[in-house]
Design a protein around this nucleic acid. Structure first.
Length: 425
RNA sequence: GGAGAGAUGUCUGAGUGGUUGAAGGAGCACGCCUGGAAAGCGUGUGUGUCUUAACGGGCACCGAGGGUUCGAAUCCCUCUCUCUCCGCCA
């Protein structure tokens, strides 16, 4: 959520930052376009209502005093009946206006950080660096590799649940589990993260805190008969771990890692990546989440991204780091780096991690604040990133470590988690 | 799922219609005292929002949302959550 004060004081600046995403974001009929009038109305009604409330409180107190002394208060009582009716009417109007303004604020995306490059589409994302050797020979698609080895069962996934579900068998199932363990252990033991295990179902408030709601309800699985949703990422429950709390600044940064399954309806991606397990309705992911101070809102992003890169390097997977341009950054983020792994069968880089800084955007929405010694509470800065999406990592391993004889070599760091298995054949 | 009890500030714990944003205690901060500390004494110690250049002021908040009333932490309704017992269950 954007800052109300900044919205009033720095309207033009904020509008310019938002417009960099897309001109539609500041169109007159957009949330942003409607916000200013709603704010003015909201404040106007609030001032009126509160003035009358003050009057009511003053006289009511007087009535109490008079009655306490046994004096007659019938004059005041008679006058207050009407005032009270007016107060009630104004209160209702003010509350409605405030609710409308708040609702519209929730639909305005995070203004971009100044360092974000301009662009019109994902094609304008900026490559920062590459790592690893790309193989240039022809490698089959992971769905063929996996099917031939008998470890990926797409038919069973479709039978059990529908399209975009896959059953992992044998070595693939174990590889999935090994990746989970390896990633978590690395983050806990080497990067100093505090591991948490959280619900995969959350309520509406939690989903609003990190920005998935109210705008993107169609992308989520909603539970029938309950106001609850399956999480699309661990970011949601982990960040919201501290919702409506005031943290002591000395306890920041808090850095958590978590494994969760993730559920996405993929509503807008019909026809894309329909084969294989690049784009699934359910996938596993290890997520990193930082809650930190305003000063470190952005600087921690480099560190967090580095932690995700460490996993790719350990798994010997070639990748590149890309900075998303203004048109491609998600609703809640201020700045985002994507890590894209090389997929030899597609001869291109595909997203395997997205690391974002959110500034105080989520902190404000979720009511997560911190206090410096003697200072006023202010919203925490949040960051998060996948490290990594496990299904896509498995895909990348199958393709990048595929051998001409059809087998797949298991990266050395994973072999202990695979019972010493060195390759899948 | 059934029955009952409960939800108050950092914590504990009063408060069943009026000057209560909220007693008392603890904690914490500052000061006094002390060679230093403890004890003791004193003072202070919520959040949000609106307004103001600022000082300050207004309003709201006692789980959430409604209602009754001139006036609600206190009365009524709905919901959420917690605890206990029963049922069910990995």
């Amino acid at each position: 959520m954007i800052d109300r004060q900044a919205f009033r004081r720095s309207f033009e600046t904020m509008q310019a930052d938002l417009a960099r995403r897309n001109a539609d974001v500041i169109a007159p009929e957009s949330a942003w376009g409607r916000a200013r009038a709603l704010d003015i109305k909201q404040r106007d009604l609030k001032v009126q209502a509160e003035a009358l409330q003050a009057e009511r409180n003053r006289v009511s107190k007087l009535i109490g005093q008079k009655k306490g002394k046994g004096d007659d208060a019938s004059t005041e009582l008679a006058a207050m009946g009407e005032v009270s009716r007016q107060v009630k009417a104004l209160e209702t109007q003010a509350k409605e206006a405030e609710a409308k303004f708040s609702a519209v604020l929730l639909e305005i995306p995070n203004p971009l950080h100044a360092s974000v490059p301009d662009g019109n589409s994902e094609d304008d994302n900026v490559e920062i660096r590459r790592w690893g050797e790309i193989r240039s020979d022809n490698v089959p698609a992971h769905w063929d590799i996996g099917t031939d080895l008998g470890i990926l069962d797409f038919e069973a996934g479709a039978t059990l649940a529908g399209s975009r579900f896959t059953v992992l068998r044998g070595a693939a199932a174990r590889l999935e589990r090994a990746l989970m363990q390896f990633m978590l252990n690395t983050h806990v033991d080497q990067h100093g993260y505090d591991e948490v295990w959280v619900p995969a179902i959350v309520n509406r408030k939690t989903m609003t805190g990190t920005g998935q709601l109210p705008k993107f309800e169609d992308d989520l699985y909603k539970l029938e008969g309950e106001d609850a949703f399956l999480i699309p990422t661990a970011e949601v429950p982990v960040t919201n771990l501290y919702q409506d709390q005031i943290l002591d600044a000395s306890t920041l940064p808090r850095r958590h890692c978590a494994y969760t399954p993730c559920f996405r309806r993929e509503a807008g991606s019909a026809g894309r990546d329909v084969r294989g397990m690049i784009r699934q309705h359910q996938f596993d992911k290890v997520e990193l989440v930082h809650l930190t101070t305003v000063e470190r809102a952005l600087s921690d992003l480099e560190e967090l991204t580095g932690h995700a890169e460490a996993i790719l390097q350990a798994l010997e997977l070639p990748y590149r780091l890309v900075e998303l341009c203004s048109a491609d950054i998600g609703f809640s983020a201020q700045k985002t780096y994507d890590l894209e792994v090389w997929l030899p069968s597609q001869k291109c880089y595909r997203e395997i991690s997205s690391c974002s800084a959110f500034g105080q955007f989520q902190g404000r929405r979720a009511g997560i604040r911190y206090r410096e010694e003697g200072g006023k509470p202010q919203a925490v800065a949040t960051l998060n990133g996948s490290a990594l999406a496990i299904g896509r990592t498995l895909v990348a391993i199958l393709e990048n470590h595929w051998n001409a004889d059809g087998s797949v070599t298991i990266p050395a760091v994973l072999q202990p988690y695979m019972g010493g298995m060195q390759s899948i054949s």
